[in-house]
Simulated scan of single mutants.
Amino acid sequence: MPYVWLFFAGAFFCNAIPHLVSGLQGLTFPTPFARPRGRGDSSPIVNVVCGFVNIAVAIALGTDRIQWPATLEDVAALLAGGLVMGLFLAFHFGAVQRDKHTDWGQSKPAAKS
């Protein structure tokens, strides 16, 4: 059972990265608090807070469950959670970005010659 918690700890840690990176760069990025949920952009401050909350959850889930020294199974569970979340985020936000660029391209006025 501790491997399930470690899997989710890895997933939360991976999810923290894009929020922190965007927020620290002063860029907007989708969060669950935006409208539409998970597609609309949130402010950099919301992203920094969201990233830190994800890290706090990852630490809370993983700290008591990992064995010291860490076993191969512990590390594999953390990495698997991070990989699964990373792939999900890549597919999801790839679609979000394609939709934004498609919408932007359609609403852009045609150049006059």
Rank of each mutant, 00 (worst) to 15 (best):
H92G: 00
L87E: 09
V46E: 04
P2T: 11
I66D: 04
P18Y: 06
L6D: 01
P18L: 04
I66H: 03
G86V: 00
F33K: 10
V21P: 02
K100V: 11
A80D: 03
A80G: 09
K100S: 10
H101R: 14
T31S: 15
I45Q: 12
F91V: 15
V48N: 06
N54F: 09
E73I: 12
R37H: 10
P30Y: 04
F13K: 01
M1T: 11
A11K: 02
G82T: 03
N47A: 00
P109D: 00
A11W: 00
P36N: 07
R37K: 15
A90T: 13
L89M: 15
A58W: 00
P32S: 14
V46F: 00
V75M: 05
V4G: 10
A70H: 06
A70S: 12
P30M: 06
D64P: 07
E73A: 15
G38T: 06
N47E: 03
A110L: 14
A77G: 10
A34P: 05
I66N: 02
V46H: 00
V4D: 07
R35Y: 13
P30A: 08
W5K: 13
L89E: 05
R65Q: 14
S43E: 00
H19V: 01
R39M: 15
V96N: 01
V75L: 09
D74M: 02
L27N: 13
T28S: 14
C14H: 12
G51L: 09
S107I: 08
W104S: 10
V57I: 15
K100T: 09
P18W: 06
F91N: 09
G86R: 01
L27G: 10
A56N: 09
G40N: 03
A9Y: 00
R65V: 11
A111G: 08
S107R: 14
P36M: 09
V75S: 04
G86C: 01
S42Q: 06
V75I: 13
Y3M: 10
S42D: 05
G86I: 03
G38K: 01
S107L: 11
L83Q: 03
R39A: 13
R39T: 12
V53S: 08
E73H: 12
M85I: 06
C14L: 13
H19K: 04
F33E: 10
Q97D: 14
P32W: 11
A76H: 05
P44A: 06
I45P: 02
V84L: 11
I45G: 12
L79E: 06
P44L: 06
K108S: 07
L61G: 04
L79P: 07
C50E: 07
D103Q: 11
C14N: 14
G40S: 01
I55G: 08
Q97T: 14
F33P: 01
F91G: 15
A111D: 08
A34N: 03
D99Y: 03
L72D: 11
C50P: 06
A90K: 07
T28I: 04
W5N: 11
L87T: 10
T31F: 07
G38N: 10
L89I: 09
H92Y: 14
I45K: 12
T28C: 14
A11D: 02
I66P: 00
G82F: 03
I55N: 03
S43C: 04
L61P: 03
